[in-house]
């Protein structure tokens, strides 16, 4: 497992305390899990995603990600409607490990209130959060 200083923490996303990230792209928000989360899980073997059209509140469970010996629930960083899911992950769940902030994205959401993005952690705050977990 990686040490904290070895983690790749993208600058252009916001994080949740549960290790999801969210990136505002135009009027939608793309969601995935952080490098820390994928590293903790180990080799991702399956990602269970919602259906396009499903709506969730911020903090609600929208799916799960599985490694060989662990399951992690996925929680919505912002409230909204799912407008796309990453279908690539069905055949290649390891994209979550390889490119957590890129090809390993999970869902695209039309946010109910884009201002909710401001409540999420920026990179520095997330890093502090991770340090807190370690101690």
């Amino acid at each position: 497992m990686k040490e904290i200083h070895e983690l790749n923490l993208a600058e252009d996303v916001r994080y949740t305390q549960d290790h999801e990230w969210a990136r505002l792209e135009g009027d939608t928000v793309v969601v995935g899990i952080s490098d820390f989360a994928q590293d903790q899980l180990g080799e991702v073997v399956y990602v269970e995603l919602p259906q396009v059209g499903d709506t969730f509140d911020k903090g609600e469970e929208f799916g799960s990600v599985e490694s060989v010996k662990a399951v992690s629930e996925l929680y919505m960083p912002v409230s909204g409607e799912v407008v796309a899911v990453n279908e690539e992950l069905e055949g290649a769940p390891d994209l979550v490990n390889k490119e957590p902030y890129g090809a390993g994205w999970m869902i695209r959401v039309k946010p109910e209130d884009p201002a909710q993005m401001d409540s999420l952690l920026d990179k520095d705050a997330y890093l502090e959060h991770l340090k807190g977990l370690e101690s």
Binding site: Y46, E66, S67, V68, K69, A70, V71
Partner: peptide, 9 residues
Amino acid sequence: LSTREQHIR
């Protein structure tokens, strides 16, 4: 597919 099972989930 053990993640379905009790010892994990």
